[in-house]
Simulated assay, not measured.
Amino acid sequence: MTEQTIQVQLSTEKKQKPVSDQLGFGKIFTDHMFVMDYTAGKGWHDPRIIPYQPLMLDPASMIFHYGQTVFEGLKAYVTNDNRILLFRPERNMQRLNRSNDRLCIPAFDEELALEALKQLILIDKEWIPKAEGTSLYIRPFIIATEPFLGVHASSRYQFIIILSPVGLYYKEGIQPVKILVENEYVRAVAGGTGEAKTAGNYASSLKAQEVASQKEYSQVLWLDGVEKKYIEEVGSMNVFFKINGEVVTPALNGSILEGVTRNSVIQLLKHWGVPVSERRVSMQEVYDAYKAGQLEEAFGTGTAAVISPIGEFFWKDEKLVINEGETGEISKRLYKTITGIQNGTEPDPFGWVVEVDQKSVAK
């Protein structure tokens, strides 16, 4: 790890903390944030934890004009005995650097970033909610800050981490959600930025999401951008299907985000001896399985919702109601196990959780 001292400036005015049943998702932010700068020729420098505050950016900053930005999402949890746990945070930092590479953003020191994250969490640890289903959402992101109107990679960046106490991502909780299969709009194609976690991917999904919401569907299921035939992912989640006893998820193909929860689910299913495969899956195959009575479950996976059972797909003017709209047994077991590992109530045979305490933070 690069030897850089993380400077700390504590806030003199603390915000009022919300009650757990008023959290929502992504609306409330803690007292502090982490910031680090990049300058061409100097590299990443001046890592610091400072009071949460607005950013001061030049109107010509390249983020506003050319969308050069990446981000991540992970969570911190507090256990019944008041330990603070992170779930596979190193994978999020690795993925952030992979996204950096695709967006021509310089790689950062992952060890330093994790060190900064742990320090930030310890400073704002009183913000971690303790009620069931709550957690501290962590948003690392990088933006291009060079003031220049011209299309090239920026020479200046800021790496920022902010924290937000959150409740459930979907108001339905672990109850099944309804998904609209998208047949018109395209989110990403192989060779594009689909496998990077970058803002443009989400901006391009908003129109379809708006249409889905008008029809009272929670999310959009994206098909491939070339043939509009093969399943890719749901707007905020990777997707899995249990067909005739086998769990199937679309293979990573260059336009699908490699989810940390997705990877964890695959490992868990293999650990349990449940048949699981990563391969190309067409919507027609899912439809045929549904008609044959072999589509037993469907669910999404992601940091925000963890496991989100899918009770209905709407495709080509037809409703596909799965498992009579009820949460399936695999979905329940996965949710219970993963959230249990995350909050310390279930065994962690994989060594996924990282405890955050003073001993884990370098002096």
Rank of each mutant, 00 (worst) to 15 (best):
F148H: 10
H65G: 12
Y38C: 09
K125F: 01
Q22G: 15
Y170E: 02
P165N: 11
W315Q: 08
R91K: 06
K118E: 01
L206C: 15
K319L: 03
V321W: 06
R262Q: 12
N323A: 14
D21G: 04
D348Y: 12
E278S: 03
G340Y: 06
E312G: 02
F29R: 14
A203E: 05
I49V: 04
I256E: 01
G192C: 09
E111S: 09
N92K: 01
M56K: 12
P140Y: 12
K332A: 00
E172H: 14
A199M: 09
Y170H: 14
N92V: 02
N201V: 09
N323K: 14
G254C: 07
Q358T: 15
V306A: 13
S282M: 05
S205D: 05
E329C: 01
P129C: 12
S308P: 02
I307G: 08
I322A: 06
E312L: 11
L149Q: 05
L163G: 09
T261K: 03
E285P: 11
F314D: 10
V8W: 00
M1E: 09
G245M: 02
P51V: 07
A196S: 07
Q4L: 14
R102L: 07
G340C: 08
V276T: 12
V151G: 07
V166C: 15
D101Q: 15
P106R: 10
L149M: 10
G191T: 11
Q119F: 01
W44H: 09
A298Y: 00
K178Y: 07
L334N: 00
E297Q: 11
Q16G: 13
R88F: 06
M93H: 12
G340V: 07
Y230G: 00
E278P: 03
E72V: 14
Y66I: 10
G167F: 03
E318T: 14
I160Y: 06
S20K: 12
H152G: 00
N253D: 11
Y38I: 10
W127S: 13
G302D: 00
I338N: 04
E346P: 10
K359G: 02
K363F: 08
K171F: 11
P51G: 06
F314Q: 13
T301H: 05
E326F: 03
N238T: 12
S218M: 02
P275L: 03
W127C: 11
S308R: 03
Q294E: 13
G302E: 01
H45R: 13
V220G: 02
I128P: 04
P18F: 10
S282F: 04
Q267G: 05
Q294D: 11
A107E: 13
N238I: 13
L103P: 04
G300R: 06
M62H: 07
V211K: 14
A131Q: 13
K319A: 08
K75P: 02
I338L: 15
E146M: 13
I341R: 06
E216H: 13
V70L: 09
E329R: 02
N343K: 04
N244W: 05
E227M: 01
L163K: 11
Q267P: 00
P140V: 13
A60V: 03
A362N: 14
R48D: 00
W44S: 05
L85C: 05
L221N: 00
